[in-house]
């Protein structure tokens, strides 16, 4: 998967490194701001109230 992405990034190595870094940041941001906040309410340590 990762070698495949690397092969398909355009430009010389330096440009590829930059675009790879941008991709990683994008994925991390997606996780932090979209995926994790969505998953989180289903996890046990957020249940702090009695019923």
């Amino acid at each position: 998967m990762y070698p495949w992405i690397w092969r398909h990034l355009p430009g010389p190595a330096a440009v590829r490194v930059v675009s790879a870094a941008v991709l990683i940041l994008g994925v991390v941001a997606l996780l932090m701001f979209v995926v994790f906040p969505w998953v989180e309410p289903m996890l046990p340590f957020n249940q702090v109230t009695t019923q």
Partner: peptide, 15 residues
Amino acid sequence: LTTCHPRFSDRERLI
């Protein structure tokens, strides 16, 4: 005050 107990778990509540 109520919170979860033990820490990282929802098994009980600490009051």
